[in-house]
Structure formats: structure tokens, C-alpha cells
Design a protein around this nucleic acid. Structure first.
Lengths: 254, 254
DNA sequence: TAGTGGTCTAGACCACGCT
DNA sequence: GCGTGGTCTAGACCACTAG
């Protein structure tokens, strides 16, 4: 008995045809994303050749789409065997998404108090982290972050004023830093680089966070980068460890 | 004056031709990886059509290679303009690489003492994290980890015995857990999922780590997954915060 | 407007693995 | 054996952008 073809399983609903007015790859991607999202992990996907024939498109087009989904971790392949749905890692949070989004996604109400917002000359350390010459103007922002009106974190961040001229003239209690960078300056955070450690807070910081100095804090220290490698911001934040946990996922690099 | 073509810059050394006996894509990938590694970020890459003509290969082949490098974060594209080298995020460490590799990469000598290695029935919590039925056999391993003969971490991890039969019969003081899983069971860690928090240690744990109970620890709690979604291990580890920092990077999902 | 990357075609042949 | 994914070709046309 010959090996059976990988046709769709009975319970797998597939559109009969693609709309002619939109990119075929996009439509196929949506179809496959739905399969991967609805089904659990390990679900068999119809073969590349099946999709090519079924939708009257080239197998190269199918492969292109599947390649991306594999790169995104939605599918995985077994050479000589088949393609399956993978389990999707939960969405990554820390530092790429803004504080506001992060807290909202955890189902709470974020709040902000600006402690400090000024322009100063970059010292050696900040200049190095921002990858700018020492003495260049730096916008320094310190904010106390609240969740449901309780203090959660003390955020200190630095941005190059040459890269973001006028960045010091916003109201950072109301405005999202990341959103402003994207909308006003067209800069999209592409990746970050964070060192996570635990420390007991200095007494002033403990007072701001309304904790005892014996209560540990998570320290998130890192830089945020654009795709061209420019450093968008360099910061160091103190989080109350009793109220905050960092969730992180890592994928094996291929 | 017409727009100049994106030919290689003068200082860019390119092999004249590809070897005929190896996949062309692989060779091109190596060439582009070298460019991306040697040059800093933001370096202009010759156009796809240039590579296609120069090496007498199809543009599709070139695109396939560049697609992967973009997915891996080594290059980035600007539609209608050009392709550039990106800054490479530093190598990801936590939990995907083994403790031994992690410590070695930090230039120190790792050590291990097995505190506990036994098989028990899965309680509700462990069963849930391992995604196995409650009561199923679980291999529980507790190890004290040393760096340069100083205690660094207390690792507690759980594995399904049904998934890895015989896993309880190795010497885990000498053997690498991840390496054994890969070599004996053909299971490759694909992604992890870690919650990072800070805590003061219980007094017994503090004693094992040779610290005061007032000294904070990093708590790494998470699961390690194979590409088919199976949970390889579920663990919770205590790291001395004065000696250990977690480095993590995240990339924007496309 | 010319050169870039983005989508897509219609094939070929190879490498691998299940039955 | 035969169906799977992996590599590769030689083109076409579209979308976008620097000069």
C-alpha cells in the first residue's frame, strides 16, 4: 500500500479559492495562521504541492509563505516527512512593548509621575551605551510608574537629543515615549538587550517605591535598538519584585 | 546623473566564483554572514541582481539566502532602496544553553553537586507545567551549581519519565542534561518560556548557597519546549543575585 | 527614471523517510 | 516506490525611492 498523500484532514476547513485582487501569499498566510492558531501543536499541515494545486498557485509561492511561518515559529518542518503546527511561544513583553501596554495587557491601570526630565551632557558611561560622543546632549527622563495607583517601578532612561531633536519638549506623564518615537521620528524599536539582576534598593529609591530597603527589586538595565543598529534609548529601571515578574522567551537561532 | 548601481564598495572582498560541488545558497550565505560579521551595522550590501549576475545564479536563490539572514536579524531591507547589515543582538543565553555552556562562555569553571535525583508521581502543579496527566512518573532533579568552586545556583527541574525513559539512571554531576536529551533521545530544545522574579531565599536554600537570608536571589521559573510543543522540562532555579545576571534580548515579531 | 526590493510563475532535480 | 520537503533556474511584473 503506497504512502497516503497529505491532503487536509476532514475537520480542516479551507477556503475554496483565493480572492483575485489581493496578494496570494498574504491570503495563504492568513489561512495557515488560522490553522496554526486554532489547532493545537503537532497538527499535520497539507503538503506544499497540495496548496499549490488547490489554489492554482506556484509551489514557490507556497514555500515562501511557509518559510516565514517557520521563521516566526508557527510551523516546523520535517524533511522527507511533513510540516506541522508548532506551539506558539507566548508574546514577548519586556521593554519592546511600552510600560503602558505591558501593564494594560496584565489587566491593570497604569499611571505615571515624572520625577525628572532634563537635557545634560553625556558622561562617558551613558555616551558609551548610547553610542554617541561624550559631551553630546542627552535627554534624561526619570519616571515613577504606578499600577492601580500603587508604585511599581522607577524608570530611568536616556536618549540622544541629536537623534530625537525636541524630545525634551513633551509631557511625558501623559505621552507614550515609544509611540512618540515612532510617530514623530519614524523610529521603530527592533530589538532590545537587557540585563536582569536583583538588588536591594537605595533608601531614597525604596521610599519612592514605598517599600523597605530590605525588600528586593528587579533591576532591568538595557538598550533599545532600531534595525539599523542605532541605539534608541539606554535605561535602568527598578521594579518592585513583590509586584512584578519579567516574562521572557527565547528561540533557538537557526 | 542616473542613480548609481549598488556594486560592492572598494574595500569589500568577494570571492570570484562559487565552488561547483557545494550548494550555492550555503556558500552565498557564508559570504554574506562574513560581511555582516566583519562590517559594523548599517553597511550597504550589493543588490540582489548584482549577486545573481556575479555568481551566475538565479536571483531567487539570492533572495532565499537574504530572506533567512533578515529573519535571523543579520540584515535588514529597505523596499525600493537597498539592503544593509544590521547590528547583531548578542547571543541569547538563559536556559536554552546549558548551565555548563553558559558559565564557560562567561569565562569561569562550572561545577555541580547533585542534591536529589528521584522518580515520583506528578502532583497537579508539575503535571500541568509538564503537560502530562497527574500521577504520571516524573524525574525530579535538584542540583547545586558552582562557579570557580563557589555556590551560584540551586536548580530544581522536572522531566517526564514517559518521555525520557531511563533518564533517572545517569550521573547528573558529570553529565549535561541537555546534551543527553539531544544525544540519547533526539530531542532538541527549540524555545523556552521563563518568568524572572526576585526573592529572598528560604533559610535552607540560603545555607546551601552560602548567603544570608537577607540577600536577594533571582528566581528563574519556566519550561523548555521542543519544536512540536512537547514540554521537555519544567524547573525553578534560585540564583545568587550578587553573582549572576540574566542577559536577554527580544526581537520584534514580524 | 532607473535601480532597488517584493511577488509570482512553472518548471527541474535532489535528499530524505515512511510504508 | 513515492510523497515529502530542499535547492535552484530564468524569467515576468509590481511597488517603492534616490537622484
Amino acid at each position: 500500500m503506497p504512502r497516503p498523500k497529505h491532503v487536509p484532514a476532514d475537520d480542516l476547513v479551507l477556503p475554496d479559492a483565493l480572492a483575485p485582487d489581493r496578494p496570494k501569499g498574504d491570503q495563504l498566510r492568513e489561512i495557515l495562521e488560522n490553522i496554526a492558531t486554532d489547532a493545537g501543536p503537532g497538527r499535520l499541515i497539507p503538503s506544499e504541492r497540495f496548496f499549490a494545486e488547490h489554489y492554482q498557485i506556484s509551489r514557490s509561492t507556497v514555500r515562501l509563505v511557509i518559510n516565514r511561518l517557520v521563521a516566526d515559529g508557527l510551523l516546523y518542518r520535517q524533511h522527507g516527512n511533513a510540516t506541522f503546527t508548532a506551539e506558539r511561544p507566548p508574546r514577548q513583553i519586556d521593554m519592546l512593548t511600552s510600560f503602558t501596554e505591558d501593564i494594560r495587557s496584565r489587566g491593570a491601570v497604569p499611571g505615571t509621575k515624572v520625577l525628572l526630565a532634563l537635557v545634560e551632557s553625556a558622561g562617558a558611561q551613558i555616551a558609551g551605551r548610547l553610542n554617541i560622543p561624550p559631551g553630546a546632549p542627552v535627554f534624561r527622563l526619570e519616571r515613577l510608574r504606578f499600577v492601580d495607583d500603587e508604585p511599581l517601578a522607577l524608570e530611568r532612561t536616556n536618549l540622544s537629543l541629536d537623534l530625537f531633536p525636541g524630545i525634551d519638549e513633551y509631557d511625558w506623564a501623559a505621552q507614550s515615549l515609544h509611540k512618540t518615537l515612532e510617530e514623530r521620528f519614524g523610529v521603530v524599536p527592533e530589538w532590545n538587550d537587557t540585563a536582569i539582576s536583583a538588588e536591594l534598593p537605595q533608601s531614597q529609591d525604596a521610599a519612592l517605591l514605598e517599600i523597605e530597603p530590605s525588600q528586593p527589586c528587579l533591576v532591568l538595565s538595557g538598550t533599545l535598538h532600531a534595525s539599523d543598529g542605532r541605539v534608541i534609548e539606554a535605561g535602568r529601571s527598578l521594579y518592585r519584585a513583590d509586584r512584578y515578574t519579567v516574562f521572557t522567551t527565547a528561540r533557538r537561532s537557526r
